[in-house]
C-alpha cells in the first residue's frame, strides 16, 4: 500500500531564502587566505629581494667602469682594471663544451628509456637518471679532476694533431709532434671542465626529454606501426616531432645550469682571464669560478664588481630559462609538462 508523503509547507514564506553566495572567504577561511597571502608575500620579498639587491649592488660598478666593464678581458682589482668579457667568454665556452657533449647523449638516452628499453627495467632507469642528477657537483668535480682529466688531455692532443686547423683545437706554444708532449698545456682547460659539467647537465636535460617523449599519444605511435613503420620510423615520424618542444626546452634548462656551475669548474680549471677560441688549451675562467676564487680578498669595490658579474650571470641564466619554459609550454607536448 502506498502512502503519499505529506509536505509541511512553510507557513511563513519569508523564512526560506537561498543562502547568500559569496566568494569572499569568511571566518577561518579568511584567516587561512590571509595567512597564505602573508607567506607568499614574504617569499616574494625574500626571493625578489635577492634579485633587486644584486641589481642595486651592480649599479655603482657600472657607474665606475661604464661600458668598459663589459669589454675588458682581465680581472685585476689591484690595478683597478676589472671587466667581465674574459669570464663571460669562459662561461660560454665551458657551457658550450658541456652542451655539445650532453645534448646528443641526453637525447639518445631519453629515447632509449622511453622507446627502446624493456618495460620491466624502465622505472629503474628513470630512477637512475634522477639519482645521477642528485649526485653532488663536487663528486663530479672529483671524477673530472682525478679520473677524466688525464684522458681528456690525451684526447685534446689527438684533436690538436688531427683537427688542429680548427681554432678550437689549437694549443699555442706547443709542438704536437714532439717526442714527449707537454701535458701541462692540455689540462685545466674549458674542454676538461666542460666534460665534468656535462655530467651534471645531462640527467636534467634527459629527465625533461624523457618526460615529454613518454607523453606521446599511444594512438599515433600505433598508427605509425600499423602503417608499417619500424621502431625508428615511429621515433622519427611521431616521437621526435611531438617532443620537439621538450628537446629544446630540456637542452636550454641544462644550459642554464651549465652556465652557473661552480665547484667542479673551480676544481678543474687553471685561471686565465682571456677571450680565446682555444677550448682545449690550459686556462679559462667563468663568472662563478671567479666569484668563488676572489670573494675572500675582495674589498667593497671589488665585492660590488663581483656582485655585478653575478647579476649579469643571473640575467643570462634567467633569459635562457625563460626561453626554455616558453618553448616547452608552447609545443603540443607541453600541455602536461611543468618544466
Amino acid at each position: 500500500m502506498t502512502t503519499l508523503p505529506t509536505f509541511d509547507r512553510p507557513t511563513i514564506e519569508g523564512d526560506v531564502r537561498p543562502r547568500r553566495v559569496s566568494r569572499t572567504p569568511r571566518g577561518a577561511d579568511a584567516v587561512f587566505a590571509h595567512a597564505m597571502r602573508a607567506v607568499g608575500a614574504s617569499v616574494l620579498v625574500i626571493t625578489g629581494g635577492v634579485g633587486l639587491f644584486l641589481g642595486w649592488q651592480a649599479f655603482p660598478t657600472l657607474q665606475r667602469y661604464g661600458l668598459s666593464f663589459f669589454t675588458t678581458e682581465v680581472w685585476e682589482p689591484d690595478t683597478d682594471v676589472v671587466g667581465i668579457a674574459g669570464i663571460l667568454a669562459g662561461t660560454v665556452s665551458v657551457a658550450a663544451v658541456a652542451m655539445v657533449i650532453a645534448f646528443p647523449l641526453s637525447l639518445l638516452t631519453a629515447l632509449y628509456i622511453s622507446e627502446y628499453a624493456p618495460a620491466r627495467i624502465r622505472p629503474t632507469l628513470v630512477s637512475l637518471v634522477d639519482l645521477m642528477a642528485a649526485v653532488p657537483s663536487i663528486v663530479y668535480g672529483l671524477w673530472g679532476f682525478f679520473l677524466v682529466m688525464p684522458h681528456a688531455a690525451e684526447l685534446a692532443l689527438w684533436l690538436q694533431r688531427n683537427l688542429g686547423w680548427l681554432p678550437f683545437f689549437q694549443v699555442r706554444d706547443t709542438d704536437p709532434d714532439a717526442a714527449v708532449w707537454d701535458t701541462s698545456r692540455y689540462v685545466g682547460s674549458a674542454f676538461c671542465a666542460g666534460i665534468a659539467v656535462s655530467m651534471m647537465v645531462m640527467p636534467m636535460a634527459c629527465a625533461v626529454m624523457r618526460q615529454v617523449f613518454s607523453q606521446t599519444p599511444v594512438g599515433e605511435k600505433e598508427a605509425a606501426l600499423a602503417l608499417g613503420a619500424t621502431r625508428w620510423g615511429v621515433v622519427r615520424s611521431v616521437v621526435l616531432p611531438f617532443g620537439r618542444g621538450g628537446i629544446i626546452g630540456g637542452t636550454m634548462l641544462g644550459l642554464g645550469r651549465a652556465l652557473g656551475e661552480t665547484i667542479a669548474v673551480v676544481l678543474i680549471i687553471s685561471v686565465a682571464f682571456e677571450v680565446k677560441p682555444n677550448l682545449v688549451e690550459i686556462g679559462t675562467a667563468t663568472v662563478s669560478s671567479t666569484i668563488a676564487g676572489r670573494f675572500g680578498e675582495a674589498g667593497p669595490a671589488q665585492l660590488s664588481a663581483l656582485l655585478a658579474a653575478g647579476f649579469v650571470l643571473f640575467l643570462i641564466t634567467l633569459a635562457v630559462n625563460t626561453v626554455a619554459a616558453v618553448v616547452v609550454n608552447r609545443g603540443r607536448s607541453g600541455a602536461g609538462v611543468e618544466a
Binding site: L259, T262, S288, F314, L318, V320
Partner: peptide
C-alpha cells in the same frame, strides 16, 4: 629566482 646560480 630558480635561475639564481647557487654561488650568487
Amino acid at each position: 629566482m630558480t635561475a639564481l646560480p647557487s654561488i650568487v
